[in-house]
Amino acid sequence: MRTSQITVVLTMNDLDTLEQQSLFILREAFSRIEKLALLWSIGKDSCAVLWLVKKAFFGHVPFPIVHVDTGCKMDGMIEFRDRLAKEWNLPLIVGQNKAALKQGVGPHQGRITCCEALKTDGLKAIVAEHGFKGIIAGIRRDEEGTRAKERVFSPRGVDAGWNVHDQPPEFWDQFTTSVPPGASIRIHPILHWTELDIWRYIEREGIPLVDLYFDKGEGKRFRSLGCAPCTAPIASRASNIAEIIAELETTTVSERSGRAQDVESEDAFEKLRANGYM
């Protein structure tokens, strides 16, 4: 008898478990929150979330994809964004704090000031303009200390502020899905994934990615993407995903070590996030 060509997934491995939980979170957000948008940084994590959105909604992307353009993203990121947006017919919204850019805001005024003006304020402006109540962001607990404290559905105050010391309880997959007028909710569908999980998933699913993550023979690559002036490459010869995975399994260096704004001061990142940074 010929084996029939059907898929019966009756056991789930660790990546399946992570993926299925993320699909549940994304559908929960879509069902419960009226005006929803996905924040797309063009990095590997938000690309994975974008992929999960397409899985959750059967190939569709049923809410806007927001990219906050600081005007100084690294070479290749904007091209990749526009190419994928066209290929996948993404409902893309690009936001920019033009006023700040016009005034010449840049990292020379202090990285925190620059991040807050170009990224945090840029995001707040888009949220206000479109009236978004929910912003989906691809952050993970294992990235750094303050993100580790996050909830999956994280309420933000009227000023988009995050009160890390008084967060709502969250258990049994019952989330805080409604907030007072003017306030909003951040939704974190891959909070429970690790950097390694993301790479293994990208490899398994064949998720398209900007090539800045790979060494092109120069012995360096980017592990985390951001603005060109504040993002440094790491020394690495990993030129494909398999090599990146092998490298990550033994490294003792943190993922965001190349991100200068995190180490501007001891609590720089916590302050950034409390004020509404992603």
């Binding site: 060509q5 997934v9 789930m12 478990t17 549940f24 397409k54 059967f58 699913e205």
Partner: peptide, 30 residues
């Protein structure tokens, strides 16, 4: 229903987030 799988899915188990279609148009809500 699924997206990104090459062959049809015919069964699913606890823990999976699925989408199904029905043979009859009954009223269903969250």
């Amino acid at each position: 229903e699924s997206w990104g799988t090459k062959v049809p899915v015919i069964a699913a188990v606890a823990g999976q987030s699925v989408g199904i279609t029905l043979d009859d148009h009954i009223f269903i809500e969250r």
